[in-house]
Design a protein around this nucleic acid. Sequence first.
DNA 1: TATATTTAATGTCTATAGGTCAATTATGTC
DNA 2: GACATAATTGACCTATAGACATTAAATATA
Lengths: 224, 224
Amino acid sequence: MEKAPFLTVDSVIFSFDESALKLLLVKRAIDPFNDQWSLPGGMVAGAKGNTLEAIARDKLMIKSGVDVDYIEQVFTTGNDQRDPRGWSVSVVYSALIPYQAAHHNADWVADAAWFKVDELASMRLAFDHQDIIQVALERLRQKSLYSIVAGYALPAPFTLSQLQHIHEVILGKPIQAKSFRRRIEQADLLEPAGEIQLDRGRPAALFRMKPAARKYTFVRNLDG
Amino acid sequence: MEKAPFLTVDSVIFSFDESALKLLLVKRAIDPFNDQWSLPGGMVAGAKGNTLEAIARDKLMIKSGVDVDYIEQVFTTGNDQRDPRGWSVSVVYSALIPYQAAHHNADWVADAAWFKVDELASMRLAFDHQDIIQVALERLRQKSLYSIVAGYALPAPFTLSQLQHIHEVILGKPIQAKSFRRRIEQADLLEPAGEIQLDRGRPAALFRMKPAARKYTFVRNLDG
DNA sequence: TATATTTAATGTCTATAGGTCAATTATGTC
DNA sequence: GACATAATTGACCTATAGACATTAAATATA
């Protein structure tokens, strides 16, 4: 490659709604891939922020109206095939946000929409964004076996059943409630936040993520 | 940031020699940080290769005479502080290579040398390479709790005792031989490769990494 | 040749943490 | 008050790592 490659920051933003894992995409308004759905993000050159993560956050705020709490770097993809214009590099971030907070804002941004990850698999997205999403998804699945960061995709406070449910959706398989609760309690990852009465059944205790939950990893994986 | 940032690929190359974890550094011959030790790597612009990883491998081959087998992306650092010239981004790779193969080659490359990771902690390195190394090290330590990729830093074939030893050095604590062997055997990660008689004691069986060992992760961590 | 020494390899028991699933608790409904 | 529905917990089972003693296979030495 001769010149410096294009450098972009793209984010895979996960959320949880109607028992489904969803992901925020924006419709491109310029070539290449004009009019196709793509990951929110953009060029690093000219962006605002002192670090890559700050730039990623800023772009999400500006372009998608999303103020992200939990965000982490997934990986960086770069080659001479992913952009028809030539060499390009994308630093990929993954974020988890409560659907509610995001929903309203996503409305006032033109051409931003949430897609269920299942439906999404068959869509043709811009660049190699489909591949990127698969990597981010796999990472999220792995992580859900030994952490509870998925909880950042729920509006706080939430019940343990809700927290378990999002894990089950991400993993695509049921989890033993007892195992799930036991390890969380032992690791002291959640903070009590009252209780709530759902439509039916026994009222459930409410919790918020404790700061420790952001980094905590269990020494054993759940059945995967 | 206005213009596109500098984009580089840097590699943290680990190896194992004299019971110590070592790491390959090269002395810079240009500003900034002229004459200071730094991670092998360089600018992506103008480099040879169709992917970031290919470029990383090529730079190691050309500049350090090292042909890497095991290499993986660690993370990407980017901000306006790490390079005095302004915004710069570095995609960081981590590689594990047998010391023997590496040693000779490192000789015919000017100003490349191996450093024990312990000694290295007090050195002043170029850019934020000291920080990068710490991240790569931490990643390697984590990984050594649930995989045996550290074996790629040994010349094949190797004994189980040697494989255990490098893990102990990386983790900085002893490992139960029984636990270590049991899980490896059960996961069928190694291929028998004869046996060897060391200076003293019972001869040891020799093994090589099976392909599966590259990606395999145990469901449970060793004591960390 | 027998014994001590050294390192490799294994047997066995214990401890820990998740898996299973039944039982209990707390509400709302009929 | 009996039933339905969820949440939560109790009790036992299982899998896998930790501890540590024991056995195995070689060399060195008396």
